[in-house]
């Protein structure tokens, strides 16, 4: 028995050293040299300051910017408190939140009552930090953005088209638009 205890204690301490210290630090070291930007969060530097991460969605409310999906991470897009709503499919609260979001989007974008809305704009993402919307959700907002920036809708639509990310290798995932990248492009090309 005492030998098993000695084996066990030795083994767990040694494994902790190898797998808990050596392995993560080695990966960190290599990552910091070879993939420095990715390892540190794919941070975007704009006008000499960090404006966010390519991978993390942001809360947009000004009319000249495209908006992402509803977020329940903290008060919204809190990247230190990720999470989803966990509302079930028959929960009245879910229907209520979807209805509120629907009204908000109809008002902000001056949509007719019978115009359909892409579902990603009405539902909260799993992480609360989803950086993407569907291309349809971007085109839906083009008119509002164009009006508030005083440019033609076609111009905005062109920028959207340039920013549609295809399925990876033509197969994996879904076509999507990165909202932050799109908004940065608007500021760059239309100001």
């Amino acid at each position: 028995m005492s030998r098993i205890i000695k084996n066990s204690v030795g083994m767990i301490l040694l494994m902790t050293l190898i797998l808990g210290i050596f392995y993560p630090l080695l990966v960190t070291g290599i990552a910091q040299i070879v993939f420095k930007s990715q390892a540190n969060g794919s941070i975007i530097i704009n006008d000499n300051r960090a404006t966010g991460s390519h991978l993390i969605g942001q809360d947009f409310s000004l009319p000249q910017y495209f908006q992402g999906r509803p977020s329940v991470a903290g008060p919204g897009y809190d990247a230190s408190a990720s999470g989803g709503s966990n509302l079930g499919a028959t929960n009245k609260e879910l229907y209520k939140q979807v209805a509120e979001q629907e009204n908000k989007i109809r008002t902000e974008n001056s949509l007719a009552q019978d115009q359909n809305i892409p579902v990603d704009l009405l539902t909260a993402s799993a992480s609360g930090l989803d950086p993407h919307i569907t291309p349809a959700a971007a085109y839906l907002q083009a008119k509002r953005v164009a009006v508030s920036r005083g440019v033609s809708v076609n111009k905005v639509n062109d920028i959207i088209a340039e920013h549609i990310e295809k399925r990876q290798f033509g197969l994996l995932g879904e076509p999507r638009v990165n909202v932050l990248k799109l908004n940065l492009a608007l500021d760059r090309e239309l100001s």
Binding site: S85, N86, A99, E102, I117, P118, D120, S125, E174
Partner: peptide
């Protein structure tokens, strides 16, 4: 509610 796209997107990533 008048939506386009798959409806079960609550709690899913685009």
């Amino acid at each position: 509610r008048g939506v386009t796209g798959p409806t079960a997107m609550e709690g899913k990533e685009v």
